[in-house]
């Protein structure tokens, strides 16, 4: 029989508050959400019926009941892949510019954080003003530059709406990744770069053979973080800027979850969709962890 010593009791008592926190704020809501997804709702009221996986099946099979699920899935994937690539490329570039002392101003370095510090809905409202078709700043600038004859709709343009949201999203989420990359770059010893330089490696070779492999754990973290953000945290922008339109051009899964739950008041189906969204996240994260695992990289190159 396992004996509890004073030390182990003390250890458990120390982690108990954290465990309670995890249970109350993470585990319980998760389990409760899963239980909701197995229930039937009609006009916001539980029918009392346990429908098991019917909500999930309906989402994939009933086009008119869960309209545009596949369309939304495609829009979501398009947005997520574009957003993650854009955020990673831009933030890594800025981090390298900071490391190479191309950006030296302390004021500039700290002001880079500003977009991330602004609450999501507020930044969405600000972008709404910027994009506004009647008095927007962007229209004003383009008009003054003579690039447009009259103020035009940006978020109502089927070809531009998703990219307008993407732009606003990237603006907000680049800073956090920039700082993570900067921290990662700071951990690479200068001696490694000096050795590469002595061996005659050029800028690109150094970047791809030293910087990127050394940054792999950080890159993995940024990719996981940004994928989770891109899948759900664009919601405020869609809500404020387009309401999923024009047509279904910006109707992402996160938006559909909101509509199913709070406009159609089908909490069961809305939660089922949210779980599907979470599963998509898990797939992305699994792919990153497998593909970008540093140990796997070493094995692939014949090491160990």
């Amino acid at each position: 029989m396992k004996r509890y010593t004073k030390t182990s009791i003390f250890a458990y008592s120390i982690i108990l508050p954290s465990l309670l926190f995890i249970f109350i704020f993470l585990l319980f809501p998760l389990l409760y959400s899963i239980s909701i997804s197995f229930r039937g709702y009609k006009y916001g009221v539980p029918t009392g019926e346990i429908v098991w996986f019917r909500n999930f099946v309906d989402i994939f099979t009933k086009e008119t009941v869960a309209p545009g699920f596949y369309e939304s899935l495609l829009v979501t994937l398009k947005f997520t892949v574009s957003a993650v690539i854009a955020v990673v490329v831009i933030s890594l570039t800025i981090a390298l510019l900071i490391k190479e002392r191309c950006i030296t101003s302390t004021w500039l370095k700290y002001s880079l954080l500003l977009p991330y510090a602004i609450p999501g809905v507020i930044s969405a409202v600000v972008w709404n003003w910027i994009y506004d078709a009647n008095f927007g700043v962007l229209n004003g600038v383009l008009f003054k530059l003579g690039l447009i004859k009259d103020y035009v709709g940006i978020t109502s343009n089927p070809g531009l709406a998703l990219w307008a949201i993407l732009f606003a999203y990237v603006w907000k989420f680049v800073p956090a990744s920039t700082y993570i990359f900067s921290a990662g770059l700071a951990t690479i010893p200068d001696s490694v770069y000096e050795a590469a330089q002595m061996d005659g490696a050029g800028t690109f070779r150094t970047f791809f053979k030293i910087t990127i492999p050394s940054l792999m754990p950080v890159l993995q973290l940024v990719l996981v973080m940004q994928t989770i953000f891109a899948l759900v945290m664009h919601f405020g922008l869609v809500f404020v800027l387009t309401q999923g339109g024009p047509g279904s051009r910006t109707r992402t899964l996160a938006w559909l979850v909101y509509m199913e739950s709070f406009t159609y008041t089908r909490f069961g189906r809305g939660t089922a969709m949210a779980i599907i969204l979470a599963l998509i996240m898990v797939v992305f994260i699994y792919v990153y962890l497998v593909l970008l695992n540093p140990e796997r990289q070493i094995e692939r190159k014949g090491g160990r």
Binding site: A133, V152, I154, T155, S156
Partner: peptide, 12 residues
């Protein structure tokens, strides 16, 4: 009718 009406409410 301008296309921007798709992003305009009656208030706009």
């Amino acid at each position: 009718i301008p296309r921007k009406v798709l992003e305009m409410t009656a208030v706009d």
